[in-house]
Design a protein around this nucleic acid. Structure first.
Lengths: 179, 179
DNA sequence: AGACTATACATCGGCTCCGATATATAGAAG
DNA sequence: CTTCTATATATCGGAGCCGATGTATAGTCT
């Protein structure tokens, strides 16, 4: 997820580590700072894999900035990661939001629609948070307000997203038809 | 988060590992299976820390079940974790949902309200997913439907949760007042 | 009869993440 | 003048998570 976010932000413009840190922190769940010990090794991994290159920028006030630029391999790798997004990337809220943030970079509307359809299929699977044996429990079956809230929030989110998926998928497929 | 979920489910009734696995999978983001290599070491950790005890149940069809029961130390530890929930537990959606699922076990309404207030404070911090320098970017400033959807979904979730927090906090504080 | 699936627990290697720590500079606050 | 904060990068140890693999049994499907 972190790697996807790094590649996604760099796809738009070269950035140095510190700025990347700020942007990723904002993106992942509203300002949850990512640790230095997480970011810099991740950058190194991506550099080692040939997905990005760094140029040391002279004349800054603190330690010299390393401006990071995606290589062509890196650009293709981001598109591949978006295209093949599945599993946790589809089902986990944080991962999915990261995919969504950069799905614009996957230029083909058909490919974008395919990813959205996987998310749609996931959301349409009947599922509940709590079970009594095999039977799913609804919000009205809890007397405590916390689980009621939990389900109410989840339902509101789901409803909004399903509506958005519906309209966006229609737009994407009609767009693909006219091209 | 996994440990909190294990303690939370066991607080209600003793369960064996396999059943725990099913329940945790349902709770964390709608059926995302947790790996065996994650669950069983976690159980061992909690057992080693004296938070739960196991009794081998004979006469089952596969490998013998280990029924897990929370110790008194474990019960107090869950309440402590809930009471002191902060940081990632408040800000991260998955973690927060886990806290919410078991907040019922924190019997004192004042303590429950204190946790909800931390979440409220977090949600009320102005924050956006994307920035242009210092300026937060709104949904209407994106021409791609994906970031628009991202913000729309996040706003719907936030609105629902804020409304729920408001009514629940009022109920909890009036309840505390009458006791 | 043989294969597959569900149940049930366990271990191991590899990878990632986090917190702590270190280094260094520039500007603001006291 | 010193301290604090922000900027900026880097490393290291510890811990947790995951995927793969192993063991074992009972029922179902072919």
């Amino acid at each position: 997820m972190l790697e996807l976010a790094i590649l996604g932000f760099l796809y738009e413009q070269p950035l140095h580590g510190y700025e990347l840190k700020r942007r990723v922190a904002h993106l992942t769940g509203h300002v949850r700072p990512i640790a230095d010990g997480t970011l810099y090794p991740a950058i190194k991994r991506l550099e080692k894999a040939g997905l990005l290159s760094r140029q040391t920028e002279p004349g800054t006030r603190a330690a010299p900035r390393h401006v990071l630029t995606l290589t062509d391999v890196g650009r293709e790798d981001l598109r591949r990661r978006l295209r093949e997004a599945d599993g946790v990337e589809i089902s986990d809220e944080n991962h999915w939001f990261t995919v969504l943030a950069f799905l614009r970079h996957l230029e083909d509307p058909d490919q974008q629609a395919a990813v959205l359809r996987r998310r749609l299929a996931f959301l349409q699977e009947p599922s509940s948070f709590f079970y009594e044996g095999e039977r799913p429990l609804g919000a009205e079956e809890f007397d405590d307000p916390f689980r009621q809230g939990l389900l109410a929030i989840a339902r509101a989110t789901s409803r909004t997203e399903l509506h958005w998926l519906d309209t966006t998928l229609k737009a994407l497929t009609s767009e693909a038809g006219t091209n």
